[in-house]
Design a protein around this nucleic acid. Structure first.
Lengths: 221, 221
DNA sequence: ACAAAAGTGTTCAATTTACACCCATGG
DNA sequence: CCATGGGTGTAAATTGAACACTTTTGT
């Protein structure tokens, strides 16, 4: 029996929720889009395997990323090669430059989640579904939205993350008040960022808080 | 590499959150309390393995229980016998009769979570922690509290689940109104249940709803 | 001066909380 | 008829939603 790791790496780019997709260059599913991943090595801890695959397949450094275990998939026929049980990880990344092709020469690129849903190899559609679901919930109950932002970010950046991941519009004023009013969510810096026009926005850093009480309420669908 | 399944089976008994614990009769950790579990069979789906272990070790039938995947544990040295990766499952059970000892003659019994926390074999303390955490959250955002009740239950029973799992007191009147007011949470039956004293309570069945909007608010700590 | 985006103050509605009160049953 | 727990009504307090308005910049 083989044990593998698969990665659903999400980011917010171009006003869309995007996922890092590779094109498979080997059978099975040669030429298909798939989540990056690979087999675990003997004696390797799960988390370490996820970090290693992340680096190998995408060139991304896991250190600044949020990386958490998502679920484990073990259908006996999920891989035509035989029994492969896969531990899926979810990573949330800021809007990074398009990663280079990995060492095993697969083309890696950011792709809007909507445009690949239903087209992935193996049971990766199911994994991606769950990853998106988890990301949406995480925004409600935790401060993880900051994981989609860089080291510093404006209130507008952070609000954009919520708007894209949830697919809703949020009132900038109420949003700002809620975030600033939540102890430890963000820390204002002295710096500001000017854009093309308009009043420059304060830049914030992540605060120490991880859970949100009260939760960010997603307008009931 | 071996793949195993471990089960954190929770129930509410005697005003306490209790977990099903077995006493290990083999090395390693012989004589220690542990979560029920065992090795997966070749070609067996993960969920099926969880159901099978539940039946084998505790005599419980999984069909009426809520059973969900919790997380996967794969520290290289979590089992002294060698590399064992374990998929942990969480089960929520109503207050069932004390299960018989399993087929492999281990003593299985309900034990208050508080009294075993920190004493379990392997990394089962970590698993149990996560299970309790998940159960607490589930009560906030889903209708899973009913999984701790039998086929029918009174508002007091359901409220008792919340009070025990969260360790708080809830106002019976507001609780009742909130539950009844949440579309599809519970369905009233014609039957009532009389207790030693007091007005007989209406018996309810589970409704079709699974998620709670708005959430049950846990009084901020 | 104007447009555009950041941020503040204020009001109204919805929700939660607290608690007085009535209902139905066993002893 | 009293104790006990189930269930309803209602007002105060808290919270969220909407939006007018002021601030600060580039052009």
């Amino acid at each position: 029996m083989e044990l593998a790791v698969d990665l659903a790496i999400l980011t917010v780019r171009e006003e869309q929720l995007q996922v890092l997709i590779i094109e498979r260059d080997n059978e099975p599913f040669q030429g298909w889009p798939a989540l990056p991943g690979g087999f675990m090595r003997p004696g390797e801890p799960l988390y370490a395997a996820a970090v290693r695959e992340l680096a190998e397949e995408t060139g991304l450094d896991a250190a600044p990323l949020h990386l958490e275990q998502l679920a484990t998939y073990g259908d006996p026929d999920r891989d035509p090669r035989g029994r492969v049980v896969s531990v899926a990880y979810l990573a949330l990344a800021p809007n990074l430059p398009i990663p280079r092709a990995g060492s095993d020469a697969r083309a890696a690129s950011w792709v809007p989640v909507e445009s690949v849903a239903g087209r992935l190899a193996f049971d990766h559609d199911e994994i991606l579904d769950k990853a998106v679901d988890r990301a949406r919930s995480a925004l409600e109950y935790t401060t993880l939205a900051t994981a989609f932002c860089g080291e510093t970010f404006t209130m507008g950046d952070l609000r954009g993350v919520y708007e894209v991941v949830w697919g809703v519009r949020l009132d900038p004023r109420n949003f700002s008040r809620k975030v600033v009013g939540t102890e430890g969510f963000v820390i204002p810096t002295k710096a500001k960022r000017a854009q093309d026009t308009g009043r420059p926005a304060t830049l914030y850093r992540r605060g120490p808080a991880t859970t949100l009480y009260p939760a960010m309420l997603r307008t009931k669908e």
